[in-house]
Computed example of a mutant assay.
Amino acid sequence: MTFSGFTNDDFSVFTIDGLDERMDALKTTIRPKLEDLGKHFSTVLSAETGHEIFPHVARHARRTKNPPNDTWVAFASSPRGYKMLPHFQIGLWETHVFIWFAMIYEAPNKEEYGKKLEDSLDKLYNEIPKEFVWSGDHTKPGVYKHSDLSKDELGNLFIRLQTVKKAEILCGVNISREDAIKMNGHDFITAADHVFKKLLPFYKMA
């Protein structure tokens, strides 16, 4: 395992102007680290989920004009893609690292999954660590802190997943840029492993 942790240079990639210029920097600085994390956690998650898990490092191949504002490695049970499946992610915005479980809008069974979440609302509300965060849109950096949500507000996210075509559900942890750059590779791996273990019930529910 060669992952050495994230640095200021990694986060600063997202301030570079121009699609080609930002993509070149992303490929040389962040992508090798995401590939290292992909190799490591695909093995770990395969063992923990009981399914063979494959890493998918974001390529941003469809972009022709606007440079990406975030990037990631996703983990799913298919070698061909992850967007239609329940999956895990590690990625970066300019301001933070995210470690997620995600069910995004392409998933064909998200309505059924939203009902399962709604049926488990009491358990999830009480057992999710207070420092965890939620999102209903993977394309935006904003999140809801679990500690700030009422049970009804959390339930509304689950209902929205069932009723709104573009709705998504993501749960996990954000690590601020300042905290992330203080972590060496071992520290980050340990932190991410802890988060994924807490997120396993979401995957198994799916």
Rank of each mutant, 00 (worst) to 15 (best):
F54H: 15
P55R: 08
P55L: 02
H56C: 09
V57K: 01
V57H: 00
V57R: 02
V57T: 12
H60K: 06
A61G: 04
A61L: 11
R62A: 11
R63C: 11
R63V: 12
K65T: 12
K65M: 10
K65P: 04
P67R: 03
P67N: 08
P68W: 02
N69V: 12
D70L: 04
D70H: 14
T71I: 00
W72Q: 00
A74V: 06
A74M: 09
F75I: 02
A76V: 01
S78D: 13
S78Y: 04
S78I: 02
P79N: 10
G81F: 08
Y82H: 14
K83I: 06
K83Y: 12
M84T: 14
M84Y: 11
P86Q: 06
I90N: 02
G91W: 02
E94T: 02
H96E: 05
H96N: 13
H96D: 10
I99T: 07
W100M: 02
W100P: 00
F101V: 04
M103T: 14
E106Y: 13
A107E: 00
A107T: 11
P108D: 04
N109I: 12
N109A: 13
N109K: 15
E111N: 14
E111A: 15
E112W: 05
Y113G: 09
G114E: 05
K115C: 05
K115E: 15
K116M: 10
K116L: 15
E118R: 13
D119V: 08
D122N: 14
D122Q: 11
K123G: 07
K123C: 10
K123Y: 13
L124A: 10
E127D: 15
I128K: 04
I128A: 03
P129K: 07
P129M: 08
P129N: 09
F132N: 10
F132P: 11
F132E: 08
W134M: 05
S135K: 07
G136C: 09
D137G: 03
D137T: 01
D137C: 01
H138R: 05
T139V: 01
K140H: 12
K140T: 14
P141V: 05
P141I: 03
P141N: 09
G142E: 15
G142W: 07
V143H: 08
V143P: 04
V143D: 01
K145T: 07
K145N: 10
K151H: 08
D152V: 08
D152F: 01
D152N: 06
E153M: 04
E153F: 02
L154G: 06
L154Q: 14
G155Q: 07
N156I: 09
L157P: 09
F158K: 00
R160S: 15
Q162T: 14
T163W: 09
T163Q: 13
T163P: 10
V164Y: 07
